[in-house]
């Protein structure tokens, strides 16, 4: 049982990592602020979700698992709100979204 849990955890975490990698790549390589935001939030939401799930598999107690879930939830709220704010202020500054030219 223990081994299965550990293995699942590792697999989940490994699955989460590419999201972070691609998110960081997107942050560096994408052409404008909106696309970059898109890349970042993907990493936060899915990547962190997978990693938190993987960690929950190794959590010692229910309380600990709940706390990890809470972390994910809070990051979700914070990242979506801050993403919204950044996009909003970019729009207010009349930054035009990038078009394929």
């Amino acid at each position: 049982m223990r081994e299965v849990l550990d293995l699942t955890g590792i697999v989940l975490i490994v699955c989460g990592l590419p999201f972070f990698l691609s998110g960081s790549l997107g942050l560096l390589r994408f052409p404008d602020i909106f696309t970059r935001l898109h890349a970042l939030t993907k990493a936060d939401n899915v990547g962190l979700g997978l990693i938190v799930l993987g960690l929950i598999c190794q959590a010692g107690s229910l309380f600990e698992a709940l706390r990890l879930l809470m972390v994910w939830l809070l990051v979700l709220i914070a990242s979506s709100a801050s993403c919204h704010l950044i996009a909003r202020s970019a729009l207010e500054k009349n930054i035009k979204p990038w078009m394929r030219s």
Binding site: L74, I77, A78, A81, H84, L85, R88
Partner: peptide
């Protein structure tokens, strides 16, 4: 201030 920000802060601040 964006209403979304205010809403989020209303949730986050007590926490």
């Amino acid at each position: 201030v964006s209403p979304i920000q205010q809403g989020v802060v209303r949730i986050l601040a007590p926490l």
